[in-house]
Structures are given as structure tokens and as C-alpha cells.
């Protein structure tokens, strides 16, 4: 049910790629304070759904509303933070320093011509501190490990203090202990900084220890509800198979 806490409304969204259905009739709400995991097997349309929500792909059918505004006309981008699956296409060669990468996030709240001021530099420092990367400010992004790079991209996504943060497979290729600390950091952003988090992942086992809501996709939305509802859902067992037992024991 829609309330004044609703930040994202996905309504009957469908998407096909060259006549092959990727998403069918997806509807759900994301409300303030949610830590939502979007789960599903490979090819279930998780990343596509996030791209449609963010306006990066046009929905074939249906509507997406961000903060009450249709995504096609949405302009308050500083309320949104996004960490894509592959955050850079240039790899280790790209000459940007960590500070330069985080400064990119500031652009969404600036008008043309975009000039950086003292308060922007301060915001960049604070964002780097929050992800424990402040001592790497001058370092070239390509010199950092995968886990460190992800932190920098989180810093870029939160530098404007967004109200909602989208992450697409943020822990892909990152080792287990780094993943654990990564999820703790997201917990902190969600609980202490009141940032709604939407995370695409296929890592059921780890994620459900931290999230409070789960959306399970397999072209259709097969489940959307709380962690406890997820644990008691028989439909979900079909999707997550043997991992289901594991995820229902929170620590």
C-alpha cells in the first residue's frame, strides 16, 4: 500500500528484449528505510529491473515513479545513489584519482556550468570517511583492490547524501570476509544515515542476514515481503533451493 514514505512505485512493468520477455507485470513499492534485496537466478531480470527503475532502460509497459515523479521526467537525481555492476569500463588505465571519482557524484546537484566549491570538497572528504577510504584520496582508482574500489563507488553514490541507494551485484568478485564488512557498512548507512538500500544480488545466503525486505524475481515477481515472510514462503524455496534453510537463521 502506498504511503507518504513511498519512494519508488513500480507498476505493471514489463520489458522484452527483441521479443523475448525479460520482465512480466512487475509491481511493488519501495518505502523509506527499506533494505531490499532483489534476488533471483541468472537471467531473471534483476539488473534490468533496476535499470528500468533508474530510467536507464525504457519500460515496455507500465510505469515507474520516483519520489512521486515519473522516471521519464525525474530531475531530483541527487536523491538517488547508484553503484552499477561494472562501475568503470576503462579498468586500471583510467587516470582518475579516488577524489576525482567521488567528485563525479556531486555533479547531480549542480547546475551548468558545474564548478566545485569548498563544501563539495568537504562532502567528498566526509563520504570517503564513511567508507573508511579517506587516506586513499590521491590514489589512482585502478591501483585499488576490487573491495576498495567498491567502497569508493559507494562513496561516490552517497556523497550527496541520497535518500535511496541502488547497488547492482556490489560484491561480485569480492572475497567472503570483505563481503561481510561490506554488508555491515550498508547496514550502517541504512540504520544510522536512514538511506534506503536496494541491492541486486544472487547471493541469498549472506544477503538475507542483513536485509529487511526481499523481492524475488524470475521474470515475474514471485515474492515481495519481509525476511520472515520470505523464510516461510514455499514459492521461494523453488528459487533458492538448498540455501533457504541457511538464510533463515539470523545472527
Amino acid at each position: 500500500m502506498e504511503t507518504d514514505k513511498t519512494q519508488v512505485r513500480v507498476e505493471n512493468v514489463a520489458f522484452s528484449y527483441r521479443a523475448i520477455p525479460v520482465l512480466i507485470d512487475i509491481s511493488f513499492l519501495i518505502t523509506r528505510g527499506d533494505f531490499l534485496a532483489v534476488l533471483g537466478p541468472n537471467g531473471s531480470g534483476k539488473s534490468t529491473l533496476v535499470k528500468i527503475i533508474l530510467g536507464l532502460l525504457p519500460a515496455g509497459e507500465g510505469n515507474v515513479t520516483l519520489f512521486g515523479e515519473n522516471v521519464r521526467r525525474f530531475s531530483q537525481w541527487s536523491k538517488i545513489g547508484y553503484v552499477p555492476q561494472r562501475a568503470t569500463q576503462s579498468g586500471t588505465l583510467f587516470p582518475a584519482s579516488v577524489q576525482e571519482v567521488v567528485s563525479m557524484g556531486v555533479l547531480s546537484k549542480k547546475r551548468f556550468p558545474k564548478i566545485f566549491k569548498y563544501r563539495d570538497r568537504k562532502a567528498i572528504e566526509i563520504a570517503l570517511e564513511r567508507v573508511d577510504m579517506s587516506k586513499f584520496g590521491k590514489r589512482r582508482i585502478g591501483e585499488l583492490s576490487g573491495g576498495q574500489q567498491q567502497r569508493v563507488f559507494i562513496a561516490r553514490a552517497i556523497v550527496n547524501e541520497p535518500e535511496i541507494l541502488f547497488l547492482d551485484e556490489p560484491t561480485a568478485g569480492v572475497d567472503a570476509s570483505t563481503q561481510q564488512r561490506f554488508y555491515e557498512m550498508l547496514d550502517m548507512l541504512n540504520k544510522e544515515h536512514d538511506i534506503t538500500i536496494v541491492m541486486v544480488t544472487h547471493d541469498v545466503g549472506v544477503v538475507t542476514k542483513h536485509v529487511n525486505k526481499i523481492a524475488c524475481l524470475n521474470q515475474r515477481l514471485v515474492f515481495h515481503g519481509t525476511h520472515d515472510e520470505f523464510c516461510s514462503s514455499h514459492v521461494v524455496q523453488e528459487i533458492v533451493r538448498g540455501e533457504h534453510h541457511l538464510v533463515c537463521h539470523r545472527h
Binding site: 533508474l54 547508484y82 552499477p84 569500463q89 583510467f94 563525479m104 555533479l107 556550468p113 541502488f166
Partner: peptide
């Protein structure tokens, strides 16, 4: 010069640049 920051962002990560309103 006028579009420097947008061009750098576009070059680095076009998808995220789009979600920054660029």
C-alpha cells in the same frame, strides 16, 4: 572546459553519469 566534469564522468562510467542527471 564548460563540460569537463560531465565529460570525465561520461568517459568513466556512462551508466552512473545518466543517473546523475547528465
Amino acid at each position: 572546459s564548460l563540460c569537463y566534469h560531465e565529460l570525465v564522468y561520461l568517459t568513466f562510467d556512462p551508466e552512473s553519469a545518466a543517473t546523475a542527471g547528465i
